[in-house]
Design a binder for these strands. Structure first.
Lengths: 246, 246
DNA sequence: GAATGTCATATTGTCCGACACTAAGGGGTA
DNA sequence: TACCCCTTAGTGTCGGACAATATGACATTC
């Protein structure tokens, strides 16, 4: 006879506190913006000590489900995108993902981002993107600034399609991938120029609301990046931790 | 004159504890698997109380950077995929993303997953996938089980391409999207049959190592899903919280 | 009346000390 | 060696304490 291996897990008090509050948030009984009672009150509500409540709150805080605008206010909130980005990026860095893995996914996300951005971006947004691009052109030679602006360029496109799911999915990936720029540039002299050209073409396509063209140029842009990575011999190199730069 | 709005942030002791340990992990000084000192020792190391250390540890624990195999062991670990999935899924549910957003991204991730799976999966893995599919066929009529198996089918394909970045990116999305199955099936009678057919064709293409065909069928599969969603009027409906089912 | 300044209060961040429970390792026995 | 018992250290939880300070109420000034 086989005993079903159900991993029994003792749930400690602080976990139960966190789970209970989390559950109420997910069930919609607590809505983002709602303010929670003080720690002392929560403690007697749950029948535990304040220390225990605090540990549970740290958990929720780190999950991004609650946050403190000021030390005295504790309110429910929806997890912030940048928090998720940080976490996912950290995880990918720690699991030592390769540039190949990052690139394969980027090959489909960036073209999609460009396509829906071309379809939905406002004229103002396109102009802002043009501004960003101009800054990038002006920053030639300054590696750190170039990377920063390149990232910003792609992030903006990712936001312009008004698809939050895509935004969430592509951000940590592109952040890690485009950091590779620094390692590629020295090897491929034409590289920089072609990146600039691709950016220009993407913006032009967006101005014309030509989704197909925007998508195509984005794809070529990322393909180009890969060629650079190959020249630099980075295909199966481990992507750097974004944190390492800041 | 404009005052630069520098958001002053006091960092509390428990945050500093967490940040210090986190930083050492990210810098590689602490490697996954390493065991950390006890709370009491950490407390005197950092010059704070045990309570303070504990709050910091809860933070790291929730981040998935450390975990306790048993209450007595505290070791460094790389964030687990399912943890990230849960978090991202929760976030998307709370920000009330629509099926359209989920679908748009899925339209590029699943074809990619099928393509690289067809290229890299072992014969055994393809057989296991076939097994999963057979179970799915056998589960006709049982909605909950059908959804569960459908999710598993897609997850497996996502893993078979051996691209962890894709795995991380697509999992929370597909989880949320395929839950919509339950809402679609009642409206579209042909729907179920066509999903089954698509799955079969994907497996067949994988057997032939025909990447293009696998990709094509995956795309058609997801397009089909969208047609179903349109019939059910779900395009801009908010995706359900996965938690709501469990 | 609006803006500014003062003050009392409640709540947080941190500390200390304590205790029950149990996982882990040590030593003894078969 | 393999098994069992026992000691011990470390965790989870508790209760209480205190300084610092955000907050809202109130008083003052223009």
């Amino acid at each position: 006879m086989s005993l079903t291996p159900r991993p029994i897990n003792v749930t400690f008090a602080y976990q139960q506190v966190a789970e209970e509050i989390e559950s109420q948030i997910l069930r919609g009984e607590l809505k983002p913006g709602d303010q929670l009672p003080g720690e002392t009150e929560l403690a007697q509500l749950f029948g535990v000590t304040r220390s225990t409540v605090r540990e549970g709150l740290r958990h929720l805080e780190s999950d991004g489900l609650v946050h403190r605008p000021s030390p005295r206010r504790l309110e429910v909130t929806v997890p912030q995108a940048d928090q998720l980005t940080t976490r996912a990026g950290r995880a990918m860095a720690l699991m030592k993902v390769t540039f190949r893995e990052l690139w394969e996914v980027t090959m489909v996300t960036e073209p999609l981002a460009a396509r829906i951005a071309a379809e939905r971006a406002s004229a103002d947004e396109i102009e802002m993107l043009q501004g960003l691009h101009s800054d990038l052109v002006g920053a030639e030679g300054q590696m750190a600034r170039t990377i920063e602006l390149d990232e910003a360029f792609h992030t903006r496109i990712g936001e312009m399609g008004r698809n939050r799911v895509l935004g969430l999915a592509r951000e940590p990936i592109s952040l890690l991938l485009f950091r590779g720029f620094a390692q590629i540039a020295p090897y491929a002299t034409q590289f920089y120029k072609r990146q600039i050209e691709a950016h220009s073409n993407i913006i032009a396509a967006m101005r014309d609301r030509d989704c197909d063209r925007a998508e195509k140029w984005a794809r070529m842009h990322i393909e180009d990046f890969w060629r650079g990575a190959q020249i630099a011999g980075l295909e199966d190199a481990v992507a750097l931790n974004p944190r390492a730069l800041s």
